[in-house]
Design a protein around this nucleic acid. Sequence first.
DNA 1: TTTTGAGTTGTTCGA
DNA 2: GTCGAACAACTCAAA
Length: 486
Amino acid sequence: MPDATHSPILVWFRKDLRLDDNGALLSAVEKGRPLLCVYVREPEDEAVGPLGAAQAWWLHHSLQALSATLQACGNRLILKTGKASEVLAALAEETGAKAVYLNRLYERDGIDAEILKSLYDGGLEVKRFKGQLLHDPHTMRSGTGGPYRVYTPFWKALEKDGEPREPLEAPETLPAPGTFPSSETLCDWHLLPMHPNWAEEFETLWTPGEAGAVEKLEQFVARPIHTYKADRDFPALTEATSHLSPHLAFGEISPARIWYATRGLPASDHVTHFRKELVWREFCHHLLAAFPKLRTHNWNDRFDAFPWEENDDGFQAWTKGMTGYPIVDAGMRELWRHGIMHNRVRMITASFLIKDMMVDWRRGEAWFRDTLLDADVASNAANWQWVAGSGADASPFFRVFNPILQGEKFDADGDYIKRFVPELSRLPKKYIHRPFEAPPEVLQKAGVTLGKTYPKPVVNHFEARDRALAAYAEVTGKSAVSDPRD
DNA sequence: TTTTGAGTTGTTCGA
DNA sequence: GTCGAACAACTCAAA
């Protein structure tokens, strides 16, 4: 058995499927010892929730890409299924590895603590590196000593701190062991949808893996970033945003690498705004790290009394993009077909589910987690709660998005609607966001029969708004000032 | 300790 | 059609 100075190092890949800016990998290479690169398919864990179906598709392709890159460097990716502590211990036993290197994933701190302790107790050296975020969410503290609960001071604190660290370069070689342990195959994992193959269109839009991420970044900083602040709000403009979110979610690119790519650019409000969005991701992780209940419970517990409704029919109509409100339906269908949804439309659809339909934000959060390629525990929970009004620095409860107005404001020509709700494409733009108000002859000319070719609205937005505001008023104070003797 | 200013993304109403 | 105020109060962060 090899001694510790020549024994291999296990490099445990998780949501850091990259060679670039990978502290664990680079440090392992610098030791000059052979590397065993491992990905473990772990049983579902309560703390981070199951892998969504859309992300299973992405994971398949991302692991394939990583595996090819490692092979090109003379190494391999070993795939294993089981409890990470057991799989890694067994691999160490089999190969004589004496060390496990990995990158920290803050949302997994609870699970990782146990796994790492068990590996350490088993006699392995365990080293953990940083790279998931620009700043450590646990050390960011406001002047009063606690975690930040408001975004703007958080952003200002980061600005004052100066530039985040520079990303690490990818290693050029990956020393391999003489023999590799056995590996499972991706085919065995059945991560791809079969019948039906609902991911068909994903392939035309996405290139999972590190190379795809770098390409998206290069395209974005070459041009769209210079109009980002102005254009990012219009869902019909497909080249206005970075499309980096799924790559970030799988750690195929690091936030430090993205930040660094924006440093050489001429300063502008647009560049700053993009950086602020990157910092929103940091803020969500900061919140989740400080308040782990954020993922599953109302951050503001006053909302525990909110009268959510079952409304299964409404929920089904929402998931299928059949609510009768074109901008909502376009967004939900974009999500299904492309595995992503434009940011503004996420707010509109979320507001509609929560406020117009009075459905618990957790059901919407779960649907997004299952269908979004970029699903991220921290961002998803924090943003759903932001819309619901129960979250940190949340939208005030009286802010209810009007799906008609939002459509007319941000998709004035209806181009986004036409792309995802083609049955309305012949409607004139005057009615494309309000087909239920179109005169019969206009509908007929456009080939639209409400209730047949396109649904009638599942709720009347104006009545629904009043109902939601009344319900919010119940839980946000009026009950608190009622006479306790009542 | 107390005070002060401020807070991602909206809508509606009335002048 | 455009504009400003109201929508509610509360909590946070920093001075």
